[in-house]
């Protein structure tokens, strides 16, 4: 069963073709990594799926329903959550209030369950601080804490590892795996650190200049000639 099926999705910003005829299938209960150099269109794809950017054409089938063009809050209520590449706290609200606001989606969440999420994200000591004052790494985890409170069916995490150290990346990875196992969340994760991505993702998709150039397992994608050519001389891929 496919939780997400993208067909024929294209997007232009003025003269710039950011996404061209993208096809994508996400399997249920699976973490899929989407890699590609900066500017290849990963964040734009996330914006289109989550509705924060209006698609200009193409289909985005979530559980068989075309959600292309739906309002972001409608898409969220259907079970699609996302994080932002540049962390976006709800300013003027504490860390706990940020997570509580996200939990309103699924109805009543006990304070204990919210605090448990904070502990899992190492945010328990910041529960009552204004989210806007957090360090960068803490903000990354707040992004994740919010979506954990939403128990999504489909999760889009945009470069969650960027700016984190190795132990923080491991913690983040474990939380993503846990969401898959506990809520049955299917995840699309973008990033550059393919070595770390390979530890959580079963499937890989490589994007280049708005086009999908390879799909498959980590090894298949890594050894794909088009991918090798794209990354030749690129320094932002580490293992």
């Amino acid at each position: 069963m496919q939780v997400l099926k993208i067909e024929n999705l294209s997007h232009v910003f003025g003269p710039l073709k950011v996404l061209e005829d993208v096809y994508l299938d996400l399997e249920d209960n699976t973490i899929t990594a989407i890699i590609g150099p900066n500017g290849s269109g990963k964040s734009t794809l996330f914006n289109l799926i989550s509705g924060t950017l209006r698609p200009q054409g193409g289909n985005i089938l979530f559980n068989g329903i075309n959600i292309a063009g739906f309002k972001p809050y409608v898409i969220a209520r259907r079970g699609v959550s996302r994080t932002f590449q540049d962390p976006q706290p709800l300013c003027g609200m504490t860390v706990l209030e940020n997570v509580k606001t996200a939990s309103l989606l699924t109805g009543t969440a006990s304070k204990e369950s919210l605090l448990r999420i904070l502990v899992q994200c190492s945010l328990e000591n910041e529960a009552d601080t204004d989210a806007a004052g957090l360090s960068f790494a803490k903000l990354r985890f707040l992004e994740l804490a919010r979506v954990m409170a939403m128990k999504p069916k489909l999760l889009l995490v945009d470069e969650p590892f960027s700016g984190l150290n190795t132990s923080e990346i491991e913690r983040m990875s474990n939380l993503l795996l846990r969401m898959r196992d506990e809520f049955g969340t299917s995840t699309l994760i973008s990033g550059h650190l393919v070595g770390h991505l390979a530890k959580v993702a079963k499937e890989f998709v490589a994007l280049h200049r708005g086009k999908v150039i390879a799909k498959g397992s980590f090894d298949e994608v890594r050894n794909n000639p088009a991918v090798i050519e794209t990354y030749l001389g690129e320094s932002n891929v580490e293992n």
């Binding site: 924060t52 309002k71 809050y73 969220a76 706290p89 709800l90 609200m93 606001t101 309103l104």
Partner: peptide
């Protein structure tokens, strides 16, 4: 109230609020 949380999230970041399922 939860209505208050929704309103404050609109002030905090309206785009994020919408991705949390809030009809601003």
């Amino acid at each position: 109230s939860s209505f208050g949380y929704r309103m404050r999230s609109i002030k905090g970041n309206e785009i994020v609020a919408s991705t949390l399922g809030i009809n601003a």
